[in-house]
Amino acid sequence: MTWENFEMIRAGAVLGAGFSVGFAAIGAAVGEGYAAGKASQTLAYRPELSGDVLKTMLVGQAVAETAGIFGLVIAMLLLFTPNAAQPTIAAWAFLGAGLAMGLSAIGCGIGAGLPAGSACLGIGRQPSASAQLTTLMLIGAGVAQSTAIYGFLIALLLLFKKLPDVVSMPGICALVGAGLAMGFGAIGPGIGEGIAAENAVYQVARNPENGTLLTRTMLVGQAVAESTGIYSLVIALLLILGT
């Protein structure tokens, strides 16, 4: 069975789109569900705070949703940008783009959901600090997402890079490998940074005066936790630029 060039590219693109939005949905949904669970836990014993808690939960969920939205954007781009002028190897680049975006969004969706949950718990404990908690939650969740954004960057590079005409096995493996490196490399940092943010937010609720110190400690810890994600970004960039 011989496949036309464009058929091959379309196949890679739709497969990548499926991976991208499918995997990305896992993380975003788990994170949002966690936030909703903690919100109901808070409301069980502080029902009078429902307005504040619901608002914080929705804002936190909107941030956790970002990973899913990125997956959807890459899937849409994969479905609409392929054209017949591209070389056959582009099919594998599209597959790699889907993997990079989808897998990297798993960890970051969960990681962004964790501080949202603990912010709801914290508001139940210390309603007067709710503005401080929401700010810290947004910073923590935003930083926890940065590896998903590296995944988004790698996916965009794989989508729009000018690729060589020759189809070689190392070239194919480098393109898919770049996607795998970024995707798997981003799962751990996303969850890890989320754990750091979760605990920082909850401890600020216990002791709001120490907010500045806790924020700084959280950011330093998250920067260290993110370093493995940055190693994967470097490796993925080297793999793409080497092709």
């Binding site: 939205i69 997402q145 960057l153």
Partner: peptide, 24 residues
């Protein structure tokens, strides 16, 4: 690279969200 990656993450986060919203 970690410092430069901060610029990438902060700007792609905003761009990706707004672009994603308008595409959806």
């Amino acid at each position: 690279i970690g410092e430069i990656a901060k610029v990438v993450s902060i700007s792609f986060r905003l761009y990706g969200n707004i672009m994603g919203g308008s595409i959806i």
